Simulated scan of single mutants.
Amino acid sequence: MDTEAQHTERGPSSDTDPDRESDTGEGPRSARVSEDSAASDEPDGAPSWRRTLLVGAACVAFLLLMSHFVAQPFLIPSRSMEPTLQVGDRILVNKLAYRFGDEPRRGDVVVFDGTGSFVREEPEDDPVGGLLRDGAAALGLAEPAETDFVKRVVGTGGDRVVCCDEDGRLTVNGTVVVERYLVPGDQPSAVPFDIVVPPDRLWVMGDHRSQSSDSRDHLGSPGGGMVPVDKVVGRADWIAWPFGRWSGVAGTDAFDAVPAPPTGGHPTGPAVPGTGSRG
């Protein structure tokens, strides 16, 4: 009897039992408290570390794809292109500029792979380190590879480029080129030369001629200092960093008056005393 009475007395109290499912069907109170505590550990809208990792990886992959196919950032490490480009500038190279049949023109500032023309091809000693360096360079976070160069196109296939005339000026196809983009006080070249650019090749020079190692310095190298057109990475179109220099890379009209090379080629023989024509 006592047992039955006690059982009967406890019956009504079961409505307040924390583990009993409420009439609303929300489940036991203890379960709800545990769920609420777990939810309170992470604020509403705060992404998990997995989501952050995935978003970061997707952003890096997108940037790498962009830099490979569309526009690649490059860090300028030297003074060879002053005043147009300065040390520490990060430029964006338009990789679509020459993808659809167009080719580099006189006056373009281009980035190219100098392997075989400016530097000899050497095997990569550390493939993993090379991969990491290339990835960082592709994002503009590290200096470009030692085989990458940025210069201005001065002569294209068939052009005869001569320096210097009696007044110390550069000529292309017999026309004087007034190079206003040079560093004030620099002469077009301290080394005389007279060359004819082969087809599908480029003659390139830096804007800071006294500080630039360019086609002039590789006349005796394989290729004669001429850069194959298919080694051009793209055209330097924008300065993206620092913000104070955020602008497009200025073009030039210095070559507007230069005629096309003659159909039959240029006459042989030196055009400058003391130089020889290199075809």
Rank of each mutant, 00 (worst) to 15 (best):
E103N: 02
E103Y: 02
P104E: 07
P104H: 04
P104L: 01
P104D: 12
R105C: 05
R105V: 02
R105T: 08
R105L: 00
R106Y: 03
R106C: 03
R106A: 03
R106K: 03
R106L: 00
G107F: 02
G107L: 02
G107I: 13
G107S: 15
D108M: 09
D108A: 06
V109G: 04
V110T: 11
V111P: 10
V111G: 15
F112N: 10
F112R: 08
F112K: 05
D113R: 13
D113H: 06
D113I: 15
D113S: 10
G114N: 14
G114F: 15
G114S: 12
T115C: 09
T115M: 04
T115W: 00
G116S: 05
G116Y: 07
S117C: 09
S117K: 08
S117M: 12
F118L: 12
F118I: 00
V119P: 10
V119N: 11
R120T: 09
R120W: 04
E121V: 00
P123D: 09
P123T: 11
P123W: 02
P123N: 06
P123G: 14
E124F: 04
E124M: 14
D125K: 08
D125F: 06
D125C: 11
D126K: 00
D126S: 07
P127I: 04
P127S: 03
G129V: 01
G129P: 08
G129M: 02
G130I: 13
G130W: 05
L131C: 07
L132F: 10
L132P: 13
D134H: 05
D134Q: 06
D134K: 08
G135L: 15
G135E: 15
G135A: 13
A137N: 13
A137H: 14
A138R: 15
L139C: 13
L139Y: 02
G140D: 13
G140P: 12
A142L: 15
A142S: 15
A142F: 11
E143Y: 11
E143Q: 12
P144R: 15
P144Q: 05
A145T: 13
E146R: 14
D148K: 15
D148E: 14
F149E: 08
F149G: 02
V150I: 11
V150L: 01
K151G: 00
R152L: 00
V153F: 01
G155L: 01
G155S: 07
T156M: 00
T156G: 00
G157W: 01
G158E: 14
G158D: 09
G158R: 06
G158T: 04
G158L: 06
D159R: 03
R160F: 03
R160A: 03
R160V: 03
V162W: 07
V162E: 11
V162L: 03
C163V: 11
C163G: 05
C164Y: 11
C164V: 13
D165R: 06
D165S: 01
D165Y: 00
E166V: 12
E166N: 06
E166W: 07
E166Q: 10
D167L: 05
R169T: 12
R169D: 06
R169Q: 08
R169L: 06
L170P: 10
L170F: 11
V172M: 02
V172T: 02
N173S: 06
N173T: 09
G174W: 10
V176C: 05
V176T: 13
V176M: 00
V177Y: 01
